[in-house]
Lab assay of single mutants.
Amino acid sequence: TKIIYHMDEEETPYLVKLPVAPERVTLADFKNVLSNRPVHAYKFFFKSMDQDFGVVKEEIFDDNAKLPCFNGRVVSWL
Rank of each mutant, 00 (worst) to 15 (best):
T1L: 05
T1W: 04
K2C: 11
I3N: 05
I4C: 06
H6C: 08
E9P: 09
E9Y: 07
E10Q: 09
E10K: 07
E10N: 05
E11P: 13
T12K: 15
T12D: 14
P13H: 05
P13Y: 15
P19S: 11
V20F: 05
V20G: 02
V20C: 08
A21D: 10
A21G: 09
P22V: 03
P22N: 05
P22G: 04
E23Q: 07
E23D: 09
E23W: 07
E23G: 11
E23H: 12
R24T: 11
R24S: 13
T26Q: 01
L27Q: 00
L27I: 01
L27N: 00
A28I: 15
A28T: 04
A28C: 07
A28G: 12
F30C: 00
F30A: 01
K31N: 03
N32S: 11
N32F: 11
N32Q: 12
V33A: 14
V33T: 08
L34K: 00
L34N: 03
S35E: 10
S35Q: 14
N36C: 10
N36E: 11
R37M: 08
R37F: 13
P38S: 13
P38Q: 14
V39H: 13
V39R: 06
A41G: 10
A41D: 15
A41V: 10
Y42P: 02
Y42K: 01
Y42C: 07
Y42I: 07
Y42Q: 06
K43Q: 08
F44N: 04
F44L: 01
F45I: 06
F46H: 00
F46K: 01
S48L: 10
S48I: 12
S48G: 08
D50A: 12
Q51E: 13
Q51G: 14
D52L: 06
D52R: 15
V55Y: 10
V55I: 09
V56M: 15
V56N: 14
K57V: 15
K57T: 13
I60H: 00
F61W: 12
D62W: 03
D62G: 02
D63V: 03
K66V: 11
C69N: 11
F70E: 11
V74Y: 13
V75K: 05
S76Y: 07
S76R: 01
L78S: 02
L78V: 10
